[in-house]
Simulated assay, not measured.
Amino acid sequence: RIKLAIVGRPNVGKSTLINTLLGEERVIAYDLPGTTRDAIEIEFDHGDRKYTLIDTAGLRKRGRVFESIEKFSVIKTLQAIEASNVAVLVLDAQTEISEQDAHIAGFIVESGRALVVAINKWDGLDDYNKEWIEREFNRKLRFLNFAKMHKISALKGFGVGALLRSVNEAHDAAFGKLSTPRLTRVLREAVEQQAPPRRGMFRPKLRYAHQGGQNPPVVVVHGNQLEAVPESYRRYLETRFRRAFKLDGTPLRIHFKSSRNPYA
């Protein structure tokens, strides 16, 4: 089963989204922030895929967390993200994208979880505000450029089918098998097109690559002087691997492993 965490600030429509996915009122969804206190797990099937949905209390800004029950809710949300394979980050189209939205997004990325973004209540916006929220998203959450973004109405079911298809794709990318020969071929083609910059006497030599993990995918690159590879070149390799293996919707980690002999 795909373990799916539905996360976001209070009152963005997480429980309504789950009710729409399930087609029934399984989760209380009052029009009050924070009516869902605990993480609730619900199993359901859609097409030929099986899911376990995790609905959580909305994350509040840590500074405002006073009551122990609220602290517990935040912890449950963070645990749900870590227990999931894919997180759906629900944003409210009718309010600005906040620092707290960015914090939740950052935690999902740090956890290495596959991600799909749902901008909810989209149907209530005029053209000007649609453009404005898209600019806000690209400015404040540009580090989520690996994730698919969907404009939805959880209440009306608009866009929810496409959202679920992206969840499937993100899950498959997170658990994909990356063969060593193909990874190495992509690596060598990338180096041929743009070699890493020289540092001192030596230029880093990237020899071969293999997969070191899943959810998120980890690519281990072997060679010499790899501690000298700059962050910009790591990002360049990430783009090449993503494109070659269609790794949409999942973070990708690249680890460098150097052998000791710089002349080898």
Rank of each mutant, 00 (worst) to 15 (best):
N19G: 09
N19L: 06
N19E: 13
N19P: 02
T20R: 12
T20C: 03
L21A: 02
G23P: 13
G23L: 08
E24L: 12
E24R: 07
E25N: 03
R26W: 01
R26G: 00
V27L: 09
A29G: 00
A29M: 00
Y30P: 01
Y30T: 05
Y30S: 07
D31V: 10
L32Q: 05
P33C: 03
P33Y: 08
P33V: 11
G34H: 07
G34W: 03
G34I: 08
G34V: 08
G34N: 15
R37V: 12
R37C: 14
R37K: 06
A39T: 08
A39W: 02
A39L: 07
I40C: 05
I40M: 10
I40S: 04
I40T: 07
E41P: 14
E41T: 12
I42W: 00
I42E: 11
I42Y: 06
E43K: 14
E43Q: 10
E43L: 10
F44G: 12
D45S: 14
H46Q: 07
G47E: 13
G47R: 12
G47F: 05
G47P: 13
D48L: 13
R49H: 10
R49A: 10
R49M: 09
K50R: 06
K50C: 08
K50P: 06
Y51S: 04
T52V: 15
T52F: 14
T52G: 10
D55N: 04
D55K: 00
T56H: 07
T56R: 01
T56S: 04
A57T: 12
G58D: 13
L59T: 09
L59F: 09
L59K: 09
R60G: 03
R60P: 02
K61V: 05
K61C: 06
R62A: 08
R62G: 14
G63T: 13
R64G: 12
V65T: 08
V65R: 06
V65I: 05
F66E: 11
F66A: 02
F66K: 11
E67R: 09
E67G: 01
S68E: 07
I69A: 05
I69R: 14
I69M: 04
E70R: 15
E70W: 15
E70N: 15
K71N: 04
K71I: 10
F72V: 07
F72Q: 11
S73C: 10
S73T: 06
V74H: 01
I75L: 15
I75V: 15
K76G: 15
K76A: 14
K76Q: 12
T77Q: 11
T77P: 12
L78V: 05
L78Q: 08
L78W: 11
A80Q: 09
A80L: 15
I81R: 15
I81S: 04
I81T: 08
E82Q: 06
E82N: 11
S84E: 09
S84R: 03
N85S: 14
V86P: 01
A87Y: 06
A87E: 00
A87H: 08
A87D: 00
A87G: 09
L89E: 13
L89W: 15
V90T: 07
V90A: 01
V90K: 00
L91R: 04
L91K: 09
L91H: 13
D92F: 07
D92H: 04
A93T: 02
A93R: 03
A93D: 02
Q94W: 04
Q94E: 05
T95Y: 08
T95M: 08
E96P: 06
I97R: 00
S98G: 02
D101Y: 01
A102N: 02
A102S: 05
A102H: 03
H103R: 05
H103G: 01
